[in-house]
């Protein structure tokens, strides 16, 4: 019986997880039968399922702009206190995710991480220095 549909007869065994899948759940997109879940996971990791995606989010460009755009303005540079750590976390979370089905350099990915990491470190350093100074003054007083 199918893992998801208890009343349907299983047609294939998923090559990844070994679950039984009926003809509704089975995906024969690649050269091995997959269940829908494994197919989705496979797409996320840039496997053969990538041939069938309709769209992809380019997190590398998004994160890069999240750091660069506020940093360009003198007034808006303060927003990087929030955008840089968020961009860093977003980029690291989606690090293994394919950003495009087309040939794409990893330069943006590295640049985004380096810039977001650098700005985050700078902010934390500044905050640490301020706290240290405040504590020192308070202790002296």
């Amino acid at each position: 019986m199918c893992f998801r549909h208890g009343t349907r007869r299983a047609q294939v065994v998923c090559a990844r997880c070994g679950r039984f899948a009926c003809e509704l759940c089975a995906v024969d997109a690649a050269d091995e039968p997959l269940c829908a879940e494994c197919f989705g996971h496979d797409v996320g990791l840039g496997g053969p399922g990538l041939r069938y995606v309709s769209h992809l989010v380019q997190y590398d460009s998004l994160c890069l702009w999240m750091v660069l755009l506020p940093a360009l303005g003198l007034v808006t540079a303060g927003f990087t206190l929030f955008t840089a750590p968020f961009a860093l976390a977003l980029m690291l979370f989606h690090w293994r995710r394919p950003m495009s089905v087309l040939p794409r350099s990893a330069l943006r990915r590295w640049l985004a991480v380096l810039m977001a990491g650098g700005v985050t470190l700078a902010w934390f350093g500044l905050l640490a220095w301020l706290i240290h100074r405040l504590v020192t003054e308070w202790m002296a007083a």
Binding site: R51, V53, S54, S61, L102
Partner: peptide, 22 residues
């Protein structure tokens, strides 16, 4: 627009999302 051995890929990018038609 891109050409693969077996298909034509039409790509449109809007902001940070790439859309594909094969």
């Amino acid at each position: 627009v891109w050409l693969a051995p077996d298909h034509l890929l039409v790509v449109e990018r809007a902001w940070f999302v790439e859309h594909y038609w094969r």
